[in-house]
Design a protein around this nucleic acid. Structure first.
Lengths: 227, 227
DNA sequence: CCTCGCGATTGGTCTTATCATTCGTAATTT
DNA sequence: AAATTACGAATGATAAGACCAATCGCGAGG
């Protein structure tokens, strides 16, 4: 199909990101297909995140690279449609985040360390604003993931985190004590990363995420037990 | 848009998997849109893995759940288009597979243990058939992943493994000695899983995958160094 | 009772036309 | 001369109708 042909063109790098595909009417001429077919092909590529298309005079289909958001959306669809056990998501974090922390300790640039520290500062200040706390917490974990410089795992974390934070009735899971503990944990992890102490960062992260998962699990048990 | 509306219908469970959507012409009537627009909406859902559509009399669009293959495809696009460093993929395996092994030790059913053992048996027999060896090796790792019962990580492994095995010029990376070592490693991991020894399984898997990654890395260094 | 084939149903494609959006350009105004 | 405005062209978005291709149900014929 045409979509496959165009996809190959894009993936093989023959059309660089930022450059435009021919217009729909030109593609009709080139391919011998009808307008509808061409449009369906373009729609496929659009869903795959390979192009964006704008209407208007200098519109058209612009080639782009499927960002991590593309993978994340796909993963979210997967999670939602399978009503994946929140268990599995928590488990995933427990499995992956310590590793990310150790990678971050090894690979983080100064710039990234600064960013994590800045987020952490805001985190400390948000201790009695639950909504902000929730968002900043997510930001921090994603910042650590980004500092790992492993694109695949970054994408995974982005895909997995959102559903967790959505699913969690966070306001009820988060007591002030828990928040204080989280801040301490983050501080410790950050210090280990700054010291380039991979093992330490992993160990602290493992403890932190496990604790979070345990709290979450007990909350879930109560919920399902009560229903 | 119509796609969003139908997607919500599916995700909210109002249309069960296996059931059929209205025919395209019915959707035209219901929505007031044109056939082309309806078709584009369906094409979007198809790419997202939410429906499959067959032509013919009792054809139509059948609702299904986006399988792990859907996530894997998205991940593969991501990997290909970003020319992600094989490094990152190897790193991902090193980070995730030990954890999967420990989960497998905890969660695998007898049925799954049997399956892994069966694959391992074929693995041992394939020692001088490189092509078979390659495929069976992949099978075994995926079987371990499946035994972890963590859908998210299973999907990740399926997404990541294929590109690794594609990228690797496996025949050159695999010497008979390496193959023998892999068989021994698999045997050890399998034994740990059977004994429900999570820590042991993780440690052995970590060693195995790290060794593989090292071999691969040195091969890559040579390649890039020589080019 | 089985087999073959016709026709109906459904997705797949094509054609043509029209609408909506954007931008370049030229006419108009200041 | 410069700025503003209005028109038109290019381009994607949508629509309507027709026909093709594949598939299956069902009836005619063996």
């Amino acid at each position: 199909m045409l979509a496959a042909k165009l996809r190959d063109l894009i993936l093989s790098g023959e059309i660089e990101p930022g450059k435009s595909l021919p217009t729909e009417r030109e593609l009709v001429g080139d391919s011998g297909l009808s307008r509808s077919s061409v449009r369906e092909a373009l729609r496929v590529l659009e869903v795959e995140g390979l192009i964006t298309t704008r209407p208007g005079r200098s519109g058209g289909s612009t080639v782009q690279l499927p960002g991590r958001g593309s993978v994340a959306r796909s993963m979210q669809l997967f999670v939602r449609s399978h009503s994946i056990r929140v268990e599995a998501l928590l488990e995933t974090r427990v499995g992956v985040e310590p590793f990310l922390a150790s990678l971050a300790a090894l690979n983080a640039t100064d710039r990234e360390v600064e960013e994590m520290a800045a987020i952490h500062k805001r985190f400390e200040e948000s201790i009695d604003n639950v909504v902000a706390y929730k968002r900043i917490n997510l930001d921090w974990h994603l910042a650590v993931a980004r500092a790992s410089r492993n694109e695949v795992l970054i994408a995974l974390m982005e895909a997995v985190s959102q559903p967790i934070f959505d699913a969690a009735d966070y306001q009820e899971v988060t007591t002030p004590e828990i928040r204080k503990a989280a801040i301490r944990a983050h501080a410790g992890i950050l210090k280990a990363i700054e010291a380039r102490d991979a093992k330490g960062a992993a160990a602290r992260m493992e403890k932190h995420v496990s604790a979070y998962a345990d709290v979450m699990r007990s909350k879930l048990m109560l919920d399902t037990g009560a229903s």
